[in-house]
Deep mutational scan, measured.
Amino acid sequence: VDYIVEYDYDAQHDDELTIRKGDIIKNVKKLEEEGWLEGELNGKRGMFPDNFVKEIK
């Protein structure tokens, strides 16, 4: 499942992704941690907030 970024987010920890509006995040999975998703961007896998992105259908 792929998501498109709607709002910029700067990573706060090493396991998070810095994302920018218009980025496409690939292979996204829901995490047990409420409010977070995990996906791949530019060869890096990491977490990001689910309210900054929208699923591409």
Rank of each mutant, 00 (worst) to 15 (best):
L37D: 05
I25H: 00
D8E: 06
E34P: 09
L41V: 09
E55P: 15
V53Q: 02
W36M: 12
V1Y: 06
E6T: 13
I24M: 05
F48H: 00
D23N: 06
V5W: 02
F52D: 03
G43Q: 07
F48M: 09
V5F: 01
V5Y: 02
K54A: 11
L17R: 01
V28S: 09
K44M: 13
D14T: 14
I24V: 07
E33K: 14
E55R: 03
N42I: 04
D50L: 14
P49H: 15
F52T: 07
E34W: 04
V1E: 04
H13N: 10
Y3S: 04
L41R: 04
V28Q: 01
L31W: 07
G46K: 03
E38L: 10
H13T: 10
G39P: 00
E16T: 03
R20N: 08
E32L: 14
I24E: 03
D8Q: 07
I25W: 00
K44T: 14
Q12P: 03
G39S: 00
F52L: 12
Q12I: 14
K57R: 06
G22P: 01
K44Y: 11
K26S: 11
E38M: 09
E55T: 03
I56F: 07
Q12L: 14
K26E: 06
Y9G: 01
D23S: 08
W36T: 05
Y7M: 14
D50P: 09
E34F: 06
R20L: 10
D15E: 09
F48Y: 02
N27H: 11
V1G: 11
E34I: 09
K44G: 06
D10H: 12
Q12N: 08
E6A: 08
Y7A: 15
M47V: 10
N42F: 10
D14S: 13
Q12F: 07
M47R: 11
E55D: 04
V5M: 01
D14N: 12
E40Q: 11
T18E: 05
T18H: 06
E34S: 08
E32D: 11
D14M: 08
Y7R: 15
D14L: 13
D15N: 12
N51G: 10
E40K: 06
L17F: 03
L41N: 06
I19R: 00
D23Q: 15
G46D: 01
T18D: 06
V53R: 02
K54S: 15
Y9Q: 02
V28D: 00
K29R: 12
D15S: 12
D15L: 12
V53W: 04
K57P: 15
D50V: 07
N42G: 09
D50I: 06
Y9E: 00
I24N: 03
G35E: 05
I4D: 03
M47I: 11
F52W: 03
N42A: 10
K54R: 12
D10Q: 10
I4V: 08
N51I: 06
I24W: 05
A11I: 02
L31E: 11
D50G: 05
I19W: 00
L37Y: 04
F52Q: 03
F48I: 15
E16W: 03
E40A: 07
D50A: 15
E55V: 11
G43D: 08
R20P: 00
I56W: 05
P49I: 07
D2H: 13
D50Q: 10
A11H: 04
I19Q: 00
Y7K: 15
V5L: 01
Y3Q: 02
L31T: 10
E40R: 07
M47H: 07
D15H: 12
T18P: 03
E55A: 05
D8A: 04
D2V: 11
D23P: 01
T18F: 05
V53Y: 03
K21D: 03
E6R: 05
R20M: 09
E40D: 14
V53E: 03
D15K: 14
L37Q: 03
G46H: 01
K57I: 15
E34N: 10
E6L: 15
D23V: 04
K54G: 05
G22H: 06
Y7F: 04
G22N: 14
H13V: 14
K21W: 05
V53G: 11
I56L: 11
R20K: 13
D15G: 12
K44P: 01
Y3N: 03
Y9A: 03
K54D: 09
D15A: 13
N42T: 07
L37M: 13
K29E: 11
N51E: 15
V1K: 14
D14G: 10
L37N: 03
E32H: 09
I19D: 00
T18N: 10
D14F: 11
D10R: 12
R45I: 09
M47W: 07
G35P: 06
Y9L: 04
K21M: 10
D10K: 12
F48V: 15
D10L: 13
N51T: 15
Y9N: 04
H13E: 11
A11Q: 13
F52S: 06
Y7V: 13
K44W: 09
G46A: 06
K54W: 05
A11P: 11
I56S: 03
E34R: 11
D10N: 12
E55F: 02
E32N: 11
D23Y: 06
I19Y: 02
K57H: 15
N51D: 15
E33S: 13
K57Y: 15
I25M: 05
T18Q: 08
E34D: 12
L17P: 00
V53T: 05
P49N: 15
K44N: 13
E16R: 04
L31H: 09
G46R: 02
N51Y: 06
E6Y: 06
H13L: 12
V28M: 02
E40L: 09
D2F: 13
V28G: 15
D50W: 07
P49T: 09
D14I: 12
Y7L: 14
G39V: 00
R45F: 11
W36G: 01
L31N: 13
K30V: 11
